[in-house]
């Protein structure tokens, strides 16, 4: 299914957290809090949280432990009503959308296999989400389908690309204060940056024959 360069191969020994001593205190405390064991969910109940974990794992192809970490950070946002400051006027508020989505995934799973979403085999979960993503219908259950997909992916990417594990596979050194950068420009690197091992492995090219 995947023809691209595995994300782990580009910067295999790059570890952002090794640079943590060079960061300012406020930023270091924040970033380190993201790799500590997460708090138990507050807004989502146990089953909803398990469903959210499976959903997040599928949306970014992540293992359960990391997916649960991200689901916990999403739960925290929903508990605190930490939205992006807007919602479409044809959509409920964000925390209601999430609850409806998690119930809707179970409805879809029951129709497909007679089980909950969490109980579906991974490949079936993927197929179900693929159907949701590519459907031509404007609605999905009681929600605007396109707006719902965008919201789920936005929350999930915000959680993952705030996590040092994501920065490692991108070769992005993360926080940069008070150190800053001295070597700017094309193909210029700092001593703490690492070269891409497979610079010509263009993931867009690899899919042309798909």
């Amino acid at each position: 299914m995947s023809g691209g360069q595995a994300p782990e191969d580009r910067f295999p020994t790059f570890r952002v957290l090794a640079q943590a001593p060079a960061w300012d205190a406020a930023t270091r405390e924040l970033v380190l809090s993201r790799v500590r064991p997460p708090h138990p969910p507050v807004y989502l109940n146990g089953h909803e949280f398990a469903t959210a974990t499976a959903l997040v794992g599928q949306l970014l192809d992540l293992d359960d432990e990391l997916a649960a970490h991200l689901a916990a950070s999403i739960d925290h946002r929903l508990t605190e009503d930490e939205t992006d400051g807007w919602h479409y006027d044809d959509m409920p508020v964000d925390h209601d959308v999430w609850r409806q989505v998690l119930a809707g995934l179970d409805d879809d799973a029951r129709q497909r296999n007679g089980t909950t979403f969490v109980e579906l085999p991974a490949a079936e979960q993927h197929a179900l989400l693929h159907a949701l993503h590519t459907s031509q219908d404007e609605r999905w259950h009681d929600l605007n389908r396109g707006h719902t997909w965008d919201l789920l992916l936005r929350y999930t990417c915000t959680a993952y690309y705030a996590h040092p594990a994501a920065w490692d596979e991108m070769g992005w050194p993360g926080p940069a204060y008070p150190r800053g950068y001295k070597n700017i420009g094309i193909d210029a690197r700092e001593p703490f940056e690492q070269e891409d091992r497979v610079p010509s492995a263009d993931p867009t090219k690899d899919r042309d024959d798909e």
Binding site: M1, S2, G4, Q5, A6, P7, R10, F11, Q58, L59, L60, D61, H126, L129, H133, D150, L153, R154, C157, Y161, A166, E169, M170, G171, W172, D196, P199, A201, D202, P203, T204, R207
Partner: peptide, 20 residues
């Protein structure tokens, strides 16, 4: 990257290409 319709492993592969 997500606006191009990518998700799952495909999205992460393209994201890991960020420096280019």
């Amino acid at each position: 990257v997500a606006a191009q319709g990518h998700w799952g492993r495909e999205l992460r592969e393209r994201m890991s290409d960020y420096v280019h």
